[in-house]
Write a protein that binds this DNA or RNA. Structure first.
Lengths: 356, 356
DNA sequence: ATTCGACAAAGAAACCTTACAATTCAGGAA
DNA sequence: TTCCTGAATTGTAAGGTTTCTTTGTCGAAT
């Protein structure tokens, strides 16, 4: 591959001049400029990002660490981030941790060697990111957390209103007359799973509903997790009449379990998910879900990150995007239950309206 | 960030020794070795992949160019490639072309600057890859095409038996008694779209069915494309009774159009897709589809590529994976049609059994 | 006519690593 | 003891770029 020396030689200018032409870093008189450009075209020269990065101590790569490309929610985020990054001349290095903290650590370590301009992380674990952050910050690499943050994260982040979304979903089930409402939470070491569980709990409390034993299950954020824990819930006595699943993949697992048990949704069981994946409205029955804007999550993260790259100091920003409850066919009013009046949030929080 | 010099100074050894310890490129006596490792740990040293790549003229990055992360088929491929690459110490740089040849060109150009060890490409266009390949090959960068290849591609590739899959799908519809079978093909500049169309045509020919005017529609490989062209098909007279969609996203668009027109699937229209996305069996009705192994496609591509990286010469390999027809609820036998006997492929190819 | 300033271009150093050639050392054979 | 051999270690150049410093040129001002 040709290098700058060869361009310089062919254009009969110095190395520095070639660099200035290529980067617009100083004025170069038109005739010389043209000679350089001609040489570049003639030799099919492509600058080495390696040498460039080595010299500048920074590349135009952005490392993105996600838990699983296979969960359709994350590609949406990736897409958002990619679009913004690309438009600004940055490239995305995608790392899939497979929800494995060990793999996450490896990526976090290795990525430093590429001197990326920034990192967009959807963390899978609490500890490692926090431990690594210092190293990155010292190297002048910006980091932003998306969708979830590690414990006590004090950097930039873009997340959604998980607690409020879960509250709205649970509340909707309550308003339909359900009282035996279970939830399948995500892994509780993840802050978003925790927040969604809090939202569920607060709605239950606000309605004066009592947590039944076993009605709160913790699962991995995938179909298999949902399937397994749904089967646990289905064997409880009394059986819940509604389930709030902490994400749509879990909800899909629930549907599968229901089908396996010969139960109808929403006839025997109402179900609300979280994410509102594109497929939510295509499946049978159409899945109610708390919609979160995956693309915007990624896009905001990328633009915030780039802002930070250009202005490393400055207060950390925490963007929180809204969610929206989409009601579809997977929920039904309970026929034989007593419909409880829903306690006003500000008035009776924690008070004791018992509906049963 | 600390560099090798500082490690060498702290460990009181030469630069070369540090390098040997780090790369296992020569034996180093245990005490020295330990001193080096201690210094590395103490300073939190991380080798610069940039300097390394610059020196070696090659990095351990693999560029992967895909048309759209948002189509669930591609993440599966990515996942397969990522797993294999990761296991071998390579990292994936993901580029999303958004099906835009211009963007593809940009990526192809820019990526060279990073001196990746190899490229895994799902091409969106015919021309550009072919034009770039020479440059890459000269730079010693291996390239492999996945899922599709450009016209006259003579390098490594991993694809599926598109023609056979489409043939099987169409043949199944014919065997159910359908005679008015339409297809919504993908963009015909893509070889896989073309092959699937050929499979459809051959099945029709083999059964002696005549191509009706307008029964072959070309669409983009997404839901919007399927929706638009399905609406065209629904207004044809006589209306087709079955549609073979060139991928599942198109099929989803078809379902949407059917719903919009108040038609039943499979009652009024049988439908088979291609890809067998995970969601195919979750939607209503469950979608029949030609299953192709996305993960294996990616994994094979990555391992083939790595083989080629280590052994640049050697004949180009073309791996073709099998497809499998999955029949689900979206197809039904036609009630009032005459069921044609399906012509044996080897006997009556191109002969004139007319079924209507 | 000389000096000054502005600007363009050239040249050299630095970035961090690896590969290779050169040097040192220990131990065995003569 | 001296020489030789093989292994361990060291020194240095190279790789391609950017950036800083220096040199050179030209017109304007003194």
């Amino acid at each position: 591959m040709p290098n700058m020396h060869q361009i310089a030689a062919r254009a009969k200018v110095s190395l520095g001049t070639v660099s200035h032409v290529l980067n617009d870093s100083a004025k170069v008189r038109e005739p010389l400029r043209k000679r350089v450009l001609d040489a570049v075209a003639a030799l099919g020269y492509q600058p080495s990002e390696l040498a460039r990065g080595l010299r500048r101590k920074k590349t135009s790569m952005i490392g993105m660490i996600i838990p699983d490309v296979t969960n359709p929610f994350f590609p949406a985020v990736v897409r958002g981030a990619e679009d913004v990054a690309f438009a600004n001349g940055y490239r995305l290095v995608l790392c899939d941790t497979d929800n494995d903290p060990a793999k996450e650590t490896v990526f976090l370590n290795e990525l430093r060697g590429y001197r990326p301009a920034g990192l967009i992380v959807i963390p899978s674990s609490f500890g490692d990111l926090a431990a690594q952050v210092d190293g990155y910050r010292k190297a002048g690499t910006a980091i932003i957390c998306v969708d979830r943050t590690p414990r006590r994260w004090d950097g930039d982040s873009v997340t959604v209103a998980n607690e409020a979304g879960a509250y709205a979903a649970t509340r909707h089930l309550i308003e339909l007359g359900h009282t035996r409402i279970a939830t399948i939470a995500g892994p509780l070491r993840l802050i978003n799973a925790k927040q969604r569980l809090s939202g569920y709990k607060r709605a239950m409390r606000d309605a004066g509903l009592i947590e039944s034993h076993g009605y709160i299950q913790e699962a991995t954020f995938d179909k298999a997790g949902g399937y397994a824990k749904a089967n646990v819930l289905l064997h409880l006595v009394p059986r819940p009449t509604a389930i709030f699943a902490a994400n749509d993949m879990i909800a899909l697992g629930v549907l599968q379990a229901l089908r396996g048990a010969g139960l109808q949704c929403p006839g025997d069981m109402s179900l609300i998910g979280f994410d509102d994946l594109e497929l939510a409205e295509m499946i049978d029955p159409q899945l109610s879900s708390v919609s979160q804007p995956g693309y915007r999550l990624g896009a905001s993260a990328a633009s915030l990150l780039l802002e930070r790259v250009n202005n490393p100091s400055g207060r950390a920003q925490r963007v929180v995007l809204e969610t929206e409850l989409k009601i579809r066919a997977s929920v039904a009013a309970i026929s034989n239950g007593v419909k409880p009046s829903f306690a006003k949030q500000n008035r009776v929080r924690n008070s004791a309206i018992t509906a049963r």
